[in-house]
Design a protein around this nucleic acid. Sequence first.
DNA 1: GCCGGGTACTTAACCGGGAAAGCCGCCGAC
DNA 2: GTCGGCGGCTTTCCCGGTTAAGTACCCGGC
Lengths: 339, 339
Amino acid sequence: MKRPTIADVARRAGVSKGAVSYALNGQPGVSEATRQRILAIAAEIGFNPNRAARSLSGATADAVGLTLCRPARTLGIEPFFMELISGVEAELSARSYALTLQVVADQEAEVAVHRRWWGERRVDGVLVCDLRADDRRVPVLEELGLPAVVIGGPGGTGRLASVWSDDAAALVETVEYLVALGHRRIARVGGLPALLHTAIRTEAFTEACRRLGLADAVTVPSDYTGEEGARATRRLLSSAGRPTAVIYDNDVMAIAGLSVAQEMGLAVPGDLSIVAWDDSPLCQLVHPPLTALGRDIPAYGAHAARQLLAVIGGSPAGQVQDETAHLTPRGSTAPPRAS
Amino acid sequence: MKRPTIADVARRAGVSKGAVSYALNGQPGVSEATRQRILAIAAEIGFNPNRAARSLSGATADAVGLTLCRPARTLGIEPFFMELISGVEAELSARSYALTLQVVADQEAEVAVHRRWWGERRVDGVLVCDLRADDRRVPVLEELGLPAVVIGGPGGTGRLASVWSDDAAALVETVEYLVALGHRRIARVGGLPALLHTAIRTEAFTEACRRLGLADAVTVPSDYTGEEGARATRRLLSSAGRPTAVIYDNDVMAIAGLSVAQEMGLAVPGDLSIVAWDDSPLCQLVHPPLTALGRDIPAYGAHAARQLLAVIGGSPAGQVQDETAHLTPRGSTAPPRAS
DNA sequence: GCCGGGTACTTAACCGGGAAAGCCGCCGAC
DNA sequence: GTCGGCGGCTTTCCCGGTTAAGTACCCGGC
């Protein structure tokens, strides 16, 4: 089945391909009658302009790129990315932009992909996830002049646009809530230490605990997997002066932590309160349901996509603050049992 | 920052762009010395051939498409798709193919996307998920002649290539295992009834139960969400002659079912055995850990991608059978308590 | 009756590669 | 010494759109 070109439409309409181009793109230069005739013929034979030809003369690829730098296992287990992609996609497809996805092994590979995409003009811009401290992708993107929106921050995004959420505020709110319940020994199981938002959360946690006069604010680093979350929890719960509340940097680790507590004979929330970051439906499926810090991730993705399209369109790079995660108290948090 | 073209390389090398093209593509027609000089210059100035220009003359987009037709919420919660994408991506990026992703609302939209992609030559082929009985996408793809690989089956794929896994065999194995443990009342919480693999599983379940002489093989339809899984479980466990074992079509529903059982005061596995389909890490995070039917999903995706590249390359469309899911017994299954 | 100006087109150049065809100089064969 | 053939290029055209520049025609005004 061969695909019709603009020349086929032109021939059927008895006009030149220039006229067809004007008609299809809503440009002046053809009469209304001719325009309608051309549109009808194009629809009838199922004409779609060849994207390559259009890109070649127009210099726009009508596609944006997203690279994911996580191993397959943690990519699958975290609802975050798929929800983010849904949101990004909803925004992009409404404007007929395509999303090109690439899973990479490390930042080196990611930078190489960015360079290639830009050189090939395969994408008009990229979305950047998992920002790190002194992220090497930022200077490269600035140097290339490749439109980009960083999903994360604040800070560390150079002159690039970004969409960020105030994780520090959310964490402070959580610590204050736990302290209000009567907790004095609060620990945290953090995400990958290399990621900037982990550092931001750790800093905020430490600071909030000090301000509220809590003894030691332990953060155990982890990698978002259930195994690591379980291991970290075991370590915390086995220590002398074990915490009465633990905050987890994602829901999977929180669920693993809940299991460990139960396996060690500790009642949740009686002996241990648990708070999860990322309020996926999983939090409501376990017993007790988890108190969680949640926000609208698809909307986050949609905002990032919208901002990227704006940057591609020439708008100045801004730092857009998205909704702050809010705490939904459920059955996993309660005042600590008097000991 | 402007991007170098083949003409820039040619000028620097003091040859024509034809010569550069031959040199870069490993064609005969240039001396080895010239080829090396051109390659060095291209690398030095960071030349990448413009993908649009190459597509325009070569008629290949070097990209494949994947459409996902699920609401954002269930997309996020199911590790399946993200793992599948990881596998697809690994295979594609090894061959420098890009993956273009689109999330659509329904099959109508999906067909429209396929037509557009093909007309625009944006992709060289597509992967098709969530096959339905009498799937309307199949005849359209056949008519368009768009290379495609269906992820699912067997059956219903027309003349399209497919990669499938023998869900019926896996389900039979599971039923036989439960019967061997002593269960006589087994129920199932199924996935979306419209999906072909749900129908295949339901058919196999009913047939296996009849063959083994089990009274009634109830399948309660659901939609893969935890809420629906919980509701279905409540219904099953409230009925007279309630089942002693339940098989769930995904792990999220199984976890929800486990919660419901515990909330109703039933011991798992003492009063109720639970088997989950899709053995994600979540299955090992709950108490008791779930007996699950698992297989290597990234590999499944990689096989599909490899087959699609073969079909694009002109190989005849074949039906490739992938690994059958295997049962990993864990703590959620045991002989039923004598009642 | 001729000119100016707008409308409705056509023509042709261009985007950046790929590749067929052409050209030139050199070598060996007869 | 002349011709064929080949290596190593260059020239040219092509892919399928967009768009600047050109053209034919019509209409109104003076």
